[in-house]
Nucleic acid binder design. Structure first.
Lengths: 177, 177
DNA sequence: GCAAATTAATGATTTATTCAAG
DNA sequence: CTTGAATAAATCATTAATTTGC
């Protein structure tokens, strides 16, 4: 029996879902409220990764005060959060590996000027092309590849005669390989 | 001794200002020219989010044709643009979420226990506490903004009698023994 | 129209996280 | 458990938009 459908609504304000004229309202999946997300994140930050079923139930009960939530939501949240943090970390590591040519980005913001003032004056010697549209998608960095021939004509740089010097289109391909 | 103030201001080479017109214009901070902004925005639209140092340098060099610019400006631009796009997105999501407030769907319960039993193994051994009201609100008072709605006000924790859910601060230590 | 005053954007810094190597 | 690496979030600060009184 589906007694679990407790018709729970935010305290007081009954923000009905799938109630009459249920045309567009998506009710298929849970979305954490700001407070719920904050608490979950706090727990995660505190080191919790694989909450026990006991913990999940407690957390769920507590968070239900802030809005509709079920144990499964808590469980999935931790699964997903853990996985995505790891994913993010891996991706970052890949990017870093890919771009660690000379300078470390360590203390990037604080020492940026120091790190970069030197190289600021260096000249880029490669032939570059700007706007390799659809080529930067970081979520698929593995397959990232610029098809130069596709973009050859998309040069957007247009300079005045006086500025035209050695200003070739920027091609960031070299940074990805 | 906070390691001295970060000498972050352009190291004396802030002579030329980007705005081509007039040479005496003040340039306390970089401001992208229209063309620079256009290029940066297009790069971002293409998916670029965390440009490597190499990329930053290339972009900076290219954009310097449109006006004064440094690598750090490019770096900061991407940091800020990314963060603010995300911010914008999150705000929209919150608003949407607030109005679509989904309802319970209970096909989970059985799957949940199944799924859970598999990952039940790990145990967190630390001491965790949910809703640490004190630490949330009292710590870092200097940075506290108007987060009053999130904590502190015990009124949040007062619910109706019919809902006898125990919403006192949850101490997960019980689960760790 | 035009500056002073006010508000909105956004550049630049600082702070708090994350994962995972040591 | 500690710390390196690299942000991303939060914040500070300055510039641009705009409003407003004249």
């Amino acid at each position: 029996m589906e007694e679990g459908m407790s018709d729970f609504c935010f305290r007081g304000e009954n923000v009905g879902c799938n109630r009459g004229s249920g045309s567009g309202t998506k009710c298929g999946r849970w979305n954490p409220t700001t407070e719920q997300a904050k608490v979950l994140t706090q727990l995660f930050s505190s080191g919790l990764r694989n909450p026990s079923i006991d913990q999940i139930q407690k957390i769920s009960n507590q968070l239900s005060f802030y809005g509709k939530i079920e144990s499964k939501n808590v469980f999935y949240w931790f699964q997903n959060h853990k996985a995505r943090e790891r994913q993010k970390r891996r991706k970052v590591d890949r990017d870093v590996t890919r771009s660690e040519n000379s300078i470390s980005i360590n203390f990037f913001t604080q020492n940026f000027t120091q790190l970069y003032d030197v190289s600021e004056t260096e000249k880029v010697t490669e032939t570059l092309q700007l706007f390799p549209l659809n080529s930067f998608c970081e979520s698929e960095s593995e397959n990232m590849r610029v098809h130069a021939s596709d973009c050859r004509n998309n040069t957007v740089f247009s300079f005045t005669e006086e500025e035209q010097m050695n200003h070739s289109p920027l091609d960031l391909r070299l940074s990805f390989t």
